[in-house]
Design a protein around this nucleic acid. Structure first.
Lengths: 165, 165
DNA sequence: CATTACGTTCAAATCATATTGAACGTATCG
DNA sequence: CGATACGTTCAATATGATTTGAACGTAATG
């Protein structure tokens, strides 16, 4: 067996685990994707538990999450009962979906808060007499400006560039 | 006391904590920044431990991290022994520095691995006879393409747009 | 229809990480 | 010069997230 090749694959698996770990979606997800991505044959949950030494539950859950992001897809293997998975190659689409999922919700929450804050700021109309209120109003304003720019960048570049092709 | 105002501030603090928590740099950092950002007066470590109910250690460490990112700066208050901190308003610069710090290192690591992989792939020159090697070579190639695009986006838009003014 | 082979779920155990706080070094004060 | 007021560090602990695995439902098999 080309042990050199296996070694490389293992480094990718380890690395994938570190990456997903560090962005807060758990190590196993990255390992599972790397394993499937670098496997010429579609993989079963059993393969995953064996090759990565993870539990059945972990395999099932991580594969489902990856499926949600379109990172892996289920494929038919005739005459087989098990589910087989293979990796999507289009990283752009994968990352985009994952980011949308991970960041989207957060942005929404932040927006709600900011809306409330602005309602509050508006109530204490333009140059308020209370200096603390006035200070707060200014800070909220700055926040809004930043938020809008972030939104603009998000909309214009990341998605479009990562998506195309 | 304008309890309505305090309430709003607290929501921002909570929200800030959630955000930094979710990007994996700890809840306290976000709370501390939000607190300082929404305080008209410069704040001491003592203020932080009191207002946020965190330990002296946590206050010290989070402030130092925030300083590193340029999110807060120390200011002189004459006749005072304590260190006073106030927030920078330029979110663009803050985020940029934080991202550079957080993502930069990771990209480096990934690069090392990819370089190794390509060295390996190059060894098994162009269309290899071993189908497994050939498969591996193709996958590494795809990875490289994605990585370069990510680099391009990173260099061209995010930093520039978030940074300016 | 009983048995086996799966995939899924979720409470419990495990593990990683953030947080605490006592101990320490240094600067200021009286 | 003590004594006090700080900020910092880091081992111990608490917290919270991940992972396990037994129990379960369902579909295929003989």
């Amino acid at each position: 067996m080309s042990s050199e090749l296996d070694q490389l694959r293992n480094r990718f698996i380890e690395s994938g685990g570190q990456i997903t770990q560090s962005i807060g979606v758990g190590r196993v997800i990255g390992q599972v994707f790397a394993h499937i991505y670098f496997s010429p044959e579609a993989q079963t949950l059993d393969d995953l538990t064996r090759e990565l030494s993870i539990s059945k539950g972990a395999a099932s859950m991580s594969v489902r999450q990856l499926e949600q992001w379109g990172a892996v897809r289920q494929v038919w293997v005739k005459g087989e009962r098990k589910d087989y998975y293979e990796a999507d190659e289009d990283f752009g689409r994968i990352i985009r979906r994952a980011l949308l999922d991970l960041i989207g919700r957060r942005m929404e929450t932040a927006d709600t808060l900011l809306k409330d804050a602005e309602r509050f700021a508006a109530a204490s109309r333009k140059p308020s007499k209370d200096p603390e209120r006035e200070f707060m109003r200014r800070r909220i304003e700055k926040l809004r400006i930043f938020r809008d720019r972030a939104q603009y960048i998000w909309d214009s570049s990341i998605i479009r560039l990562l998506l195309k092709k």
